[in-house]
Design a protein around this nucleic acid. Sequence first.
DNA 1: TTGAAAGCGCTAACAG
DNA 2: CTGTTAGCGCTTTCAA
Lengths: 336, 336
Amino acid sequence: MAEVSTATVSRVLNSNYPVAASTRERVLRAVTKLGYAANANARALAQSDSKTIGIIVPELVDPFFGYMVRGLEQAAQASGRLAIIATTGTRRDHELTLIDRMRERRVDAVILVSGTRTDIAYQRQLVQRAEALEAMGSRLVLCAHPPLTIPSPARSVAYDNEGGAFAVTEHLISNGHRRIAFVGGEAERPTIALRREGYLRALRSRGIEVDEALIRSEGFGRDPGYTTTRALLDEDLGITAIFAVNDTIAAGVYDALGDAGVRIPSDMSVVAYDDTPLATSLSPKLTTVHVPLEQMGREALNAAVAEHDAFARTPEDALTLGTYLVHRESVAPRKP
Amino acid sequence: MAEVSTATVSRVLNSNYPVAASTRERVLRAVTKLGYAANANARALAQSDSKTIGIIVPELVDPFFGYMVRGLEQAAQASGRLAIIATTGTRRDHELTLIDRMRERRVDAVILVSGTRTDIAYQRQLVQRAEALEAMGSRLVLCAHPPLTIPSPARSVAYDNEGGAFAVTEHLISNGHRRIAFVGGEAERPTIALRREGYLRALRSRGIEVDEALIRSEGFGRDPGYTTTRALLDEDLGITAIFAVNDTIAAGVYDALGDAGVRIPSDMSVVAYDDTPLATSLSPKLTTVHVPLEQMGREALNAAVAEHDAFARTPEDALTLGTYLVHRESVAPRKP
DNA sequence: TTGAAAGCGCTAACAG
DNA sequence: CTGTTAGCGCTTTCAA
């Protein structure tokens, strides 16, 4: 229609080569008139570059993952890429299959958000995928994912789980608290394990005896937070503060405390982790550890597409983002 | 490596043609040994079928959209497709560009979730995209989207905004309430407009005079809900119930009522819309209109990929899902 | 049951 | 500055 060769059309569409203004005009006119849209599959085939990244995430309806994916997706768009997003839901080991399906698509990188399995056999599977991706010029990026303990070409972007837990526990101790309960979910999850580490380190660094009776792990979610707190209260352990391992559990803690007539923060201080919107919607507002979720997403995308080797390191020195404590209304000094 | 032609490999991988068991074995063995992953771009090019759907959504970190996308994405995976998900964020008219980018990718369908612009010029743009997609065997599906007022090949999956608003208002009236405030956001948004319609119809059907002073639209979100409620209270309008146009606004209403010492539901009944998790996390638990978000997502995917013409209708008779009222704790009979 | 070969729609040398 | 042509890696007749 523009009376030029397909090569010329390609050149004006990609504007990567000189084309006479008049020709360009004609082509562009034809393009709009025809509603022509270049076939991205053919393009990807010809230049082996799909301008697509793959994101694998456990769940979307959860602000923790939601914010990360938001950072990821926005950064992807900003880099001229579109994101294929797949959730694993409950079938967490569906991850491997999804990585393979994305590799078929020749994505520029696949970003695996917050995996949960850590056993060696699984890690090996992951490393194999990372190598396969690497072999075709793509890449595996682990985002908020437990670090791999075996060498692999995967890049990794994480945040300081242990440090935040240390800081928030320390804050409680500074406020005179000694009997601090740790209400965690599924102890085997690496995230939880690290947060417990931080909690323990803070206690020890202040010479406070660790009482295993105060450390619970009944599972994630609001309900477990509720029942655990009820149990804690019933057992009359003399606790004056509670460290909930995330904001959602803290909501359950709040519920239980409310039902039992225990006031926050005067009778009981409560702290948590993640700083999701829930933290400010609770009353009193929750003192919690802020995790730079969106930023982490952006960094992960950067790690995914950055050419330079700033990320090509061993798993141990993965990029780790700092966390910080957000002081709100749920902590008070221990009553004398 | 398996000493067969590429044609044979294709046949075993797609198992769409008889292949000798022994040959199949050999091929499969080679595939795993090599970590071979068929190039989906080449496949899409050859059979013009990408096994991909495109989803365009304003936002991911919002349970309203989150649940819809979850339904959509899960259904996509179940149908053997992967989802390209793109958010528009604040640049809502970025939608058109995104549709084009997805058309380039030859997605099986693009699903546009909850658009906000309704002007005719924009609708025409949309229809043009719908036709372009149609022309290449793809399809545009509108999900929870304002209906198009001009003919187009776009399919549409919606829910009963007006009916739910009618039901919830009616519920308030049955409880003796007459002075019912409507706390809405951005009046021009089609969703809000429909909910207001339902509210008005319920009032009229019971012969209750509509007082414009009770109808507010200060914007979305918790803060607008708060300030609007404060204003309503200050003006001493004699209201005994508040219809918040969604759960988030209701949370702001709760905050304001709490601060003013007004008890829910004894002093003031509160109802809302959407039935997001927020509804049960508020205290007292919120009576609200349930919207089948996930189901709507699944239906939209079905509309996107279903061959049969069950959806090929005029915009007016788009598939519309019912909503229903969830009775919880925020409504009480008006005090005598 | 298998192989050869012609595309699918693009991009990237290479000529002109 | 523009056209010709050879792939990119698959699927799909058509033969054998």
